[in-house]
Design a protein around this nucleic acid. Structure first.
Length: 111
DNA sequence: CTCATGACTAGCT
DNA sequence: TAGCTAGCCATGA
């Protein structure tokens, strides 16, 4: 346990948060970080997601705060993420998750 | 130590 | 609505 640095612990909690996202739902990087105890750790969440594919985590359920896929449009990863989301019943149009954001809420548990 | 980079955000124009 | 800027955390050169 003592092997875990503060940063490693944060990343680990983020991975747990990501792993806990239900199928058909998505979270923003900021929200993942927030749930892991790192209010401004959106960029840290990126690190947690960078190796998510190898970790077997549902990385495709993490999007940007505006509901868009974080990868460059038409890129291989971009297509893959959109494909997986649709497979889970999420409406994805032009790389953006169709969600009604009536008010700018912090709670971003879409689905 | 300083500078640059990244699957980011919120705020301002 | 769209574009730009500064702030954010951590890592590597």
């Amino acid at each position: 346990m003592s092997d875990l640095s503060a940063t490693t612990a944060k990343l680990q909690r983020m991975r747990e948060v990501i792993a806990a996202i239900p199928s058909g739902c998505v979270l923003s990087y900021a929200e993942v970080a927030r749930r892991a105890g790192v209010p401004r750790g959106a960029r840290l969440a990126v690190r947690a997601l960078a190796g998510a594919e190898a970790e077997g985590l549902p990385w495709h359920r993490v999007l940007r705060a505006d509901g868009r896929i974080a990868f460059p449009p038409q890129s291989r990863e971009w297509r893959e993420q959109a494909r997986r989301l649709r497979a889970e019943g999420v409406d994805v149009v032009d790389g953006r998750v169709r969600v009604r954001r009536s008010n700018s809420l912090d709670a971003l548990v879409w689905g």
